[in-house]
């Protein structure tokens, strides 16, 4: 069934798209990037990072572009001063939550968090850093989990459960004490459910999940491979 074409306005510009797409997709089709971290092509969106919030006018609440479907005649604002300020605060908050020491991180230069901070002009953080004492899981042969860099985007959780079907990862606890865990919060190597496929590593936007043996700046994620795999799987289903 051919999808119905509709038009919406994004930051004043008339954009033609099809029904069923999200605002994020429609904007990208039109060459406009809305910042996001928890979104990854091929995975179900969860609307958790709140970076892609857009203003749909009418004084209503802001809506996440990744989970809000387009509607005929919609007027979307993606870059008002308020939205930009909020996005910067979100990045500031993420930077203080864990120990993001870019200079010694394997993902330095290839990190989505670092890149967004740079793109949005976050040059300092006004909130005090938490400096939590977090472990590094080196138990596995090929991969590393560094909790210090995790932003709880749950891309790994979703890719593992939905694409690989293993559901090794989940999040324990709640609030600021939420942590990524494998199986019963045990060393990754002892998690029997893991297939060693590495999709989680390639999906991770930061240096939290990385290949072992990579030095600073060496970890480049092949996110597109995972996206392809996810889309292949979806096509089969």
């Amino acid at each position: 069934m051919p999808q119905k074409r509709i038009s919406i306005r994004i930051d004043g510009e008339l954009v033609s798209t099809v029904e069923g797409k999200t605002i994020l997709e429609a904007a990208r089709d039109a060459g406009r990037r809305i910042p996001s971290l928890c979104h990854m092509d091929g995975l179900t969106d969860v609307g958790a990072c709140r970076l892609c919030l857009v203003d749909l006018g009418g004084g209503g609440r802001l809506a996440p572009a990744c989970t809000t479907p387009v509607q005929e005649g919609q007027a979307v604002i993606t870059n008002s001063p308020r939205l930009l300020a909020y996005r910067r605060v979100i990045l500031e908050l993420l930077l203080t939550e864990r120990n993001h020491i870019c200079s010694v991180c394997v993902a330095n230069g290839n990190c989505e968090l670092q890149a967004l901070a740079s793109a949005l002009g976050v040059t300092s953080v006004r909130f005090p850093y938490r400096y939590p004492n977090l472990p590094l899981d080196l138990s596995r042969d090929r991969f590393v989990l560094d909790q210090n860099r995790c932003i709880l985007c749950t891309r790994c959780v979703r890719v593992c459960a939905d694409v690989e079907g293993a559901h090794v990862w989940d999040v324990k606890g709640r609030g600021i004490y939420s942590r990524l865990i494998s199986d019963l919060d045990q060393p990754w190597a002892s998690a029997a459910s893991c297939t060693d496929c590495g999709k989680c590593v390639q999906s991770c936007p930061t240096g939290a999940l990385a290949e072992k043996g990579k030095a600073v700046e060496e970890m480049v994620k092949q996110t597109w491979q995972v996206t392809n795999a996810a889309e292949r799987k979806r096509a089969v289903l």
Partner: peptide
Amino acid sequence: TPLSQIFSVTTF
């Protein structure tokens, strides 16, 4: 049920 989901639930 996946182990990680059980752990998630029991700690949540």
